[in-house]
Nucleic acid binder design. Sequence first.
DNA 1: CCCCATTTTGGGAGCGCTCCCAATACCCTG
DNA 2: CAGGGTATTGGGAGCGCTCCCAAAATGGGG
Lengths: 345, 345
Amino acid sequence: MAAARVRSGGRPTLEEVAARAGVGRGTASRVINGSPRVSDATREAVEAAVAELGYVPNRAARALAGNRTDAIALVVPEPETRFFAEPYFSAIVRGVGAALADTEMQLLLTLVGNDRERRRLAQYLTAHRVDGVLLVAVHADDPLPELLEQLGMPCVISGARHAAEPLPSVDSDNFEGARAAVEHLVSRGRRQVATITGRLEVYGAQRRLDGYRAAVSAAGLAPDERLIAPADFTEEGGAAAMRDLLARRPDLDAVFVASDVMAAGARQVLREADRRIPEDVALVGFDDSVVARHMHPPLTSVRQPIEEMGRRMAQLLLDEIAGRTPGDERPSVVLPTELVVRDSS
Amino acid sequence: MAAARVRSGGRPTLEEVAARAGVGRGTASRVINGSPRVSDATREAVEAAVAELGYVPNRAARALAGNRTDAIALVVPEPETRFFAEPYFSAIVRGVGAALADTEMQLLLTLVGNDRERRRLAQYLTAHRVDGVLLVAVHADDPLPELLEQLGMPCVISGARHAAEPLPSVDSDNFEGARAAVEHLVSRGRRQVATITGRLEVYGAQRRLDGYRAAVSAAGLAPDERLIAPADFTEEGGAAAMRDLLARRPDLDAVFVASDVMAAGARQVLREADRRIPEDVALVGFDDSVVARHMHPPLTSVRQPIEEMGRRMAQLLLDEIAGRTPGDERPSVVLPTELVVRDSS
DNA sequence: CCCCATTTTGGGAGCGCTCCCAATACCCTG
DNA sequence: CAGGGTATTGGGAGCGCTCCCAAAATGGGG
């Protein structure tokens, strides 16, 4: 009999498929993996056997023999609650999921909270348990990217950490988004346009501020540092910044806020100060989160194509894994934002 | 030399650790896996070798040899956008992540959208690529749970599908949450308390309605089916239901809405109908989502301990994997909700 | 019809680990 | 000090697959 070791239950093995198709294990493997060096007749025979037996390759065996895992990790720094807030996390996951859907790649979700978990992650990666890493919401001073670099582990990050980001990255066009938002305010006749920024160590926040500045000067308005209030992406921070702005420049007639959550805080302060929105003060946020849609009045906001960012990150990573194109520039992608105009401006 | 095959680079293997510690491979394995049948001296020697070499077990080899994967899958039906909305998804993920943090278990994220992906998932599971499955937001008619059952694949679902849920499940106390919400409304002097329900095929939605009914009759109010408007968990659905209610019972003075998102829709309709909140109509939602906090006025809502639910699901699944306790009842967990009172009631 | 280049094929040799059994070491009894 | 456990230990036999080399089949050309 051609039959390999007969097994009562369990999943069929490659060996069994090969036996069934009347070919050798190696040949069967070739067919499964789509090698071109197989005759058509053989290919068909093997494919038939696969279908009949309902064969599915054993991942672990593959990983062991092939020294790869067919899995990538999405690493999420857990303290970064901002990232967990809608719309980021789920949208990124969806995008990544979509890009991976017709791939053999698995998506591993890794939350790194404290240092212990951080070390554990390092081990994971060191042990090459994944083929690549998607790093989101990394801080500029996070050692993880360097570690990955050293390990030669393919990696893509969301949001460049600074102008000369060495890693492949995917980002939305923070500068242009902010610029367009402020331009919009100006086009509505606003002249004293203030801004509340995110934490400026975050490159994206800095870029939004740059965009604000560019728009202000393009509009021929007088730049005034008192119109710029730094905050920290939190609602409370936004409120505090708004209070500062109101104290320094009571005559302001518009505020571009670098996140919807901060805008919610600002909105509260404006309400308490009896400034009507948008009559007295126009407000524009950033993120187009659910908060924006449900604010009163609904908040004009800059939408980032987050799901698309997730998709692109995954694609970039897959390319990177398939074989980084060394001659190429670092492949960083910047996606356009969209201004969603609502009643607050 | 005792040294096993010397390898230039790469990760150290068990064999190398064993050689270094001057013991056999089997013994080293025993130490790594915490078997008690090892002498203290040996254990220490192996542990030292592990530390010196920075040994990390190869997952693939383990999986292959041990016929397990040390991974569980979190299966998310992608069309279920409700689940993706804050606060569910990220909170569940956090909870699960927390429970898995000091485990060797990996978390695989699997989005199943169309039927193709559904089939692919079935393959995954069939091929035993995971040790267990966490199933969230399953519909009552989803064939997946049965498939898993057949396969003998450990599985925990979030939200029982009906009163006699055969699978281990974790749920929040929908009945009691709803009951408490309505009781709260009654205690504030409301007498014509309406409700907007979710899709009643969803068991949780049904339970919330049951809770409403229980509270209404406990308060000695006259039950009136015209005070009950079914909806579908969407904002538009909530708005439509609110319109119906207003038409049928213009004298209503409170509405318990089975989700914050629907409450947002209802709130909009009430605004258009010039009903003040809470003066004319008190509103209570469910979920305590970000929408509730930012509604105007802020919405009283029933909070579910979602992160805790994720944690419990993971724990239940780990137990199940470790060896289902057959004598035991099906281990289903129901967690208490909490009424978060804000200005809308 | 033979010879050589080319294509296709079979299957050995691992990948690194767990399982398990036989072997060894150790420890009490009597 | 022998005898019979019991506690440890070593290492063979896979797990199912990929890689790769040598063997077999195929196809021209002369």
